[in-house]
Design a protein around this nucleic acid. Structure first.
Lengths: 333, 333
DNA sequence: CTGTTAGCGCCTTCAC
DNA sequence: GTGAAGGCGCTAACAG
């Protein structure tokens, strides 16, 4: 049997308002009546009807986490980070994948934000359309974006320092390893992470007085097969690169597979480096040189900023937190 | 501005009841009035207040997914599978980790099930206490358990065929590879997956007329370090095993690390096999021999059964779906 | 400090 | 087919 506030009130011989107040720690109730109400509630194993409470309070105690897809480690780690912070803040986490469909994102966004089905939102994306930005700014609920900066008011952004990571890695390849012919397998052009990594690659060359052969830049899709295809393209060029910097580890793995089928050895025949430092990287042989991203921290930071924003009375201006990356040495370069 | 059903009613010059009916596809409304209401709702960009609807309908359109932790691939894949099925069924997925705490599980369970904060529940666990079973059976909401069989009425179970997988793998090691001294690094004794895998290992020996040296069975914790520690133990025995069957791939990786530090090579000095076929397994060198588990299918199946149960008018008896496993050959044995 | 009262927005009987 | 009215359980003024 599920008891309601009314039954507790009858039993305690007080009004339902008093019960509500006692159970919500309203300071105005006398200590003794509060104790009475609480003890009866416990005796009855009373639990407030969350749905009713959400309705009248116009809030749900739920954080929405929208991501384009749930595929690799990156997403798990983010979910994990968000969930742990949300959980300790008394919130639940509603996870939604848009299955990489723009329309789906808009729908989900609308469903989540309308009438506060969620109290706050974390959006993981690197491809914000104007329609989505509009939806976000009109939603009226606290939002934190991981990835691209939407440049919206009162919206926090967690950015991964892609540029710096790529710049450092490529500089290392040039300075320490002495490579001058470094190819790049870029990510999808519409992905801002990918764009920034490419810029780091280009700038490092420029700062070291090297020119990049345009044929050495090939687009990939952040997947293993696309990495392998890019590898094949690069190694079929008349002027082959000495090293390949893949914009993520998955594509670097594709290079390993390509090298394997070509009978080439890494790094003797061609050096390979990646980005992300996903779990498998350390088990590749040779160990992949890559750029480490503290992913769980990304999720935690996002959730922390969001909770802060949700719990704040006053309006908070947009904040930008850059998560710094670190080079991970390996024998693949 | 957020419109309510009342405003739509005024504008359409009908009652709010008619609006409600029209918007919920009640057959009784005349086609023309329904069309009118729908067009006005669209014009007003009306969206029902989900919180109010949830409250009055006593349901939330949310599926709860409770897992002990969100750590590796296994959990991501399950989330992914569940989310995709839930999404296409019009449900949202609320993910909660209990951070491996029994108390936390009970709390989460209570919060989720009470007054239908979630309409259905998927519980991923291999360690069901009586209190939790009681909570599940009393909850009154549709439940699907992944892992251990709680043997409750009207509760579906998704079981991974651990026993068969382990049995096949160990039989292969004995028959095809000719090993007779096979050690086992078991999982936590309270974990039913672990127990079943161990039974498969033992039974395979018995069926082939081999006796197992008790020292060759060591407990682990399903983690890399515990695998490495177990490896060290095993390889310090006077009578060393020829092969090691680890109850999961993470512990098998621990064996690789141990072998590395001992300067032993796999499989020449000692063969290694695992269970799960996680993503990294194929990148270990030599490629790990293991047992593949179609994890995303586990999540999808769980969600499918749950939706089926939630959408069914009549009561459905408990169902047990066994997800079969398959041996994955590798050069590590 | 506590009780009374009025909703919150929607769904759903019960009449017509 | 449609309308009127009641209520879901809780919170939040407004009185006292």
């Amino acid at each position: 049997m599920d008891y309601t506030i009314k039954e507790i009130a009858e039993r305690a011989d007080v009004s339902i308002a008093t019960v509500s107040r006692a159970l919500n720690n309203d300071k105005r109730v006398k200590a003794s009546t509060k104790a009475l109400v609480v003890s009866i509630a416990r005796e009855f194993n009373y639990r407030p009807n969350i749905l009713a409470r959400n309705f009248v309070r116009r809030k749900s105690n739920i954080i929405g986490l929208i991501m384009p897809d749930i595929v690799d480690e990156f997403f798990t780690e983010v979910i994990k980070g968000v969930e742990s912070v949300a959980h300790s803040g008394g919130y639940f986490t509603l996870v939604a994948s848009t299955h990489s469909r723009e329309g789906s994102l808009l729908e989900t966004l609308a469903a989540f934000t309308h009438r506060r089905m969620v109290d706050g939102l974390i959006l993981l994306t690197t491809n914000l359309s104007p329609a989505i930005k509009k939806g976000l700014s009109e939603s009226g609920i606290p939002v934190v974006v991981i990835g691209e900066n939407p440049e919206l008011k009162e919206t926090d952004v967690i950015a991964i320092d892609n540029y710096q990571g790529a710049y450092s890695l490529v500089s290392h390849l040039i300075n320490k390893k002495g490579y001058t012919k470094i190819a790049h397998i870029a990510g999808p052009p519409e992905n801002s992470d990918a764009v920034q990594r490419k810029q780091g690659y280009l700038q490092a060359h420029q700062d070291h007085g090297l020119t990049v052969n345009p044929h050495w830049i090939v687009d990939g899709a952040f997947t293993i097969p696309s990495g392998e295809a890019a590898f094949r393209r690069l190694m079929s060029l008349i002027q082959k690169p000495e090293a390949i910097f893949a914009a993520n580890d998955m594509m670097a793995i594709g290079c390993y597979e390509g090298a394997d089928s070509f009978g080439l050895s890494i790094p003797e025949d061609v050096a390979v480096a990646g980005f992300d430092d996903i779990f498998v990287s350390r088990f590749l042989s040779p160990r992949l040189m890559t750029v480490g991203v503290p992913i769980a921290e990304v999720g935690k930071t996002a959730a922390t900023l969001l909770l802060d924003r949700m719990n704040s009375e006053s309006h908070i201006a947009s904040r930008l937190v850059t998560i710094s990356t670190g080079m991970v040495l390996g024998q693949s370069s």
